[in-house]
Amino acid sequence: MSDWVFLAVGVMLLIAGLLALYRIIRGPSILDRMIASDMLLTTIICALGAEMVYNGHTRSLPAMLVLASTAFLGSVVVARYVSRRTNS
């Protein structure tokens, strides 16, 4: 497989990560920041996967599994915090 495919994928994931970072910095509310950081994490999982295909190994799989199964905890905690504070 030619290298330009991986180059294109890498550039696209990089752009996605930068856009998420922009929203984390700019985001008007804390929820926007959580959505953006969730997306950044998913982009990182995608990048780990793409790197494994490029180098032909499977060593990052456990890291991807742990990230995928614990990524939601952060936004759940923040969402609970936000809804508790706005209601009281």
């Binding site: 497989m1 030619s2 495919v5 996605a16 922009y22 929203r23 509310s29 959505i35 997306m39 995608c46």
Partner: peptide, 25 residues
């Protein structure tokens, strides 16, 4: 494999653009 990788990257970029453009959370 290449096609799937490109599709995955494309959807990530589209999600990022939506993250910037859409009006509310």
């Amino acid at each position: 494999t290449g096609v799937f990788l490109l599709l995955g990257g494309f959807l990530s970029v589209a999600a990022g653009v939506g993250l910037i453009r859409f009006p509310d959370a």
